[in-house]
């Protein structure tokens, strides 16, 4: 596939995603923030649904050696980076997707968050150029590198290669865990609904 075709496919994918996100008001930040702060799960359920579908599909294709899984070493920087990101997305009220989607709706605050995401990236590029951490992709080995706080690389396909068990088997285990979380949320929502209905009945009873 030529770079131009790759860019066209990516643009087409992004356009449909942007449209569906805008029409559904899905927000990844809300999926985490609302579950933590308000115990509401509208977005959390949607995120889990996508994760369940993708787990089965990705590990299924990885069992066959198909697809393009991401390959790079992970380590302390993965945890620490997403920790900072998690704080940032709640403060900004938007994540990488919703900054683009909300900007497309005319939200100037989202555009401002996007501009400062770029500024943050540039600032980190200066810090990286000074201390060269985390290691550049060219120096990654796939093996643990403890002085650089790196754990190496592992995914469903490396598990398949090492243990001789198809990647989809691990995928089905992960699917079952995600499904259990999804069902627990549904149970909690039902309980909240029943409590709400009971409360309304009590109030109506008092008024009468």
């Amino acid at each position: 596939m030529t770079p131009v075709v790759e860019c066209l496919v990516a643009f087409l994918f992004g356009s449909v995603v942007g449209l569906l996100m805008q029409r559904s008001r899905f927000c990844n930040t809300a999926a985490l923030r609302d579950a933590i702060m308000f115990r509401t799960y509208r977005n959390t359920k949607a995120m889990l649904m996508a994760m369940m579908i993708l787990t089965v599909a990705f590990t299924g294709f990885m069992s066959l050696g198909a697809g393009h899984p991401m390959e790079f070493d992970v380590g302390l920087n993965t945890f620490a980076g997403l920790f900072l990101f998690g704080i940032g997305m709640v403060l900004a009220g938007a994540c990488t997707v919703s900054t683009w989607v909300k900007t497309g709706e005319g939200n100037v605050g989202a555009l401002w968050a996007l501009v400062f995401t770029f500024v943050g990236m540039f600032l980190f590029s200066l810090v990286w150029s000074w201390n060269w951490w985390p290691p550049a992709p060219q120096t990654m080995t796939g093996e643990p590198n403890l002085p650089a706080l790196q754990l190496g690389f592992a995914n469903a396909r490396t598990l398949q290669d090492k243990l001789g068990v198809p990647a989809i088997v691990f995928g089905l285990v992960q699917f079952a865990v995600l499904l259990a979380i999804y069902r627990a949320i549904l149970r909690r929502e039902r309980a909240q609904q029943e409590k709400h209905e009971q409360h309304q009945k009590d109030v109506a009873g008092q008024d009468a």
């Binding site: 997403l82 900004a92 994540c95 968050a113 500024v119």
Partner: peptide, 9 residues
Amino acid sequence: GGLLMGIGI
């Protein structure tokens, strides 16, 4: 928030 997201990524 924007700065932290950029640095974190």
